[in-house]
């Protein structure tokens, strides 16, 4: 797996805003329960969140949804500012987080243009019995540290280890490898895979939808590309036949 470059393609035109991905991620990754107080304090944690933007007024009104998770930037602004290497790039193209190194400066969170880094302002609490649901593959983060989407790295580790052991190859899009959010998404708006594998679904989508030297123009874009973060998440534009203005301006 050393040569993989994991990434995601998100089709905004397919996303319905159902938030199956949100709970799937919370369940897989031991994300603490967001209580009413936590929401009021604006400290809710959702490694993947679904944003809703309005457009227009009744009756010509649109509500549009977009899922936002860590973009696993190749030139991640969160990485150089971390004094202790708690967040870094691994050789599979992912931005990963070592919880037990993090000292909680929150520098990285300030510098993440996508606002996908979440700080544990409190010690997470689960009532006794609910602790049975916690995933033993994933660290339960304590107070004072930063957390964020890991592309469900524990699944990659477990699956590749088992594949190594059994001497088999892991197929593109294998369920046991795919992140929880991707598996849950009812509309398959989320596609995940290896950009280094030229036959993978994500590579094909990137090939088809991203423009290459201006030769082809698909629906692909990277969020806030102008910042030079080189995300490993590609979004596919929402289609709206009534769209008045289709070009993003800076």
């Amino acid at each position: 797996m050393a040569d993989a470059k994991w990434g995601m393609v998100i089709d905004v035109d397919k996303c319905t805003g159902c938030q199956a991905c949100v709970v799937a991620c919370q369940s897989e990754n031991n994300v603490p329960i967001n209580t009413e107080d936590i929401f009021n304090q604006r400290r809710a944690i959702e490694w993947i969140r679904v944003e809703r933007y309005w457009e227009g007024e009744f009756p010509d009104v649109k509500a549009r949804f977009i899922p936002v998770l860590c973009q696993h930037c190749d030139d991640a602004p969160c990485e150089p500012v971390c004094p202790v290497f708690a967040t870094y790039h691994n050789n599979e193209g992912m931005n990963v987080q070592i919880y037990n190194r993090c000292i909680g400066t929150r520098f990285c969170a300030n510098n993440c243009p996508y606002h996908v880094r979440y700080f544990n302002f409190w010690e997470p609490e689960w009532p006794d019995t609910l602790t049975h649901q916690l995933n033993p593959d994933v660290t339960v983060r304590s107070r004072g540290i930063m957390e964020k989407c890991t592309f469900c790295v524990q699944r990659i580790r477990r699956t590749s280890r088992e594949a190594d052991r059994d001497g088999r190859e892991i197929e593109d899009g294998a369920r046991e490898l795919s992140p929880a959010c991707v598996n849950s998404c009812p509309t398959s708006a989320l596609v995940w895979g290896d950009f280094n594998n030229k036959n993978s679904k994500v590579s094909n989508l990137a090939e088809k939808e991203m423009s290459h030297n201006g030769s082809h123009h698909g629906r692909g874009y990277k969020m806030m590309e102008n910042l030079g973060t080189s995300p490993n998440v590609i979004y596919l534009k929402k289609i709206d036949k009534h769209a008045k203005e289709t070009v993003a301006h800076e």
């Binding site: 933007y53 549009r64 929402k238 709206d240 289709t246 070009v247 301006h249 800076e250």
Partner: peptide, 24 residues
């Protein structure tokens, strides 16, 4: 209590930075 943060007006992606659109 809500996920969207408190702000005075309706949240709108005015510059299409988050959700650019296309006609097809």
């Amino acid at each position: 209590s809500k996920f969207e943060n408190t702000k005075p007006d309706i949240s709108e992606d005015t510059h299409r930075k988050i959700i650019p659109l296309t006609n097809g």
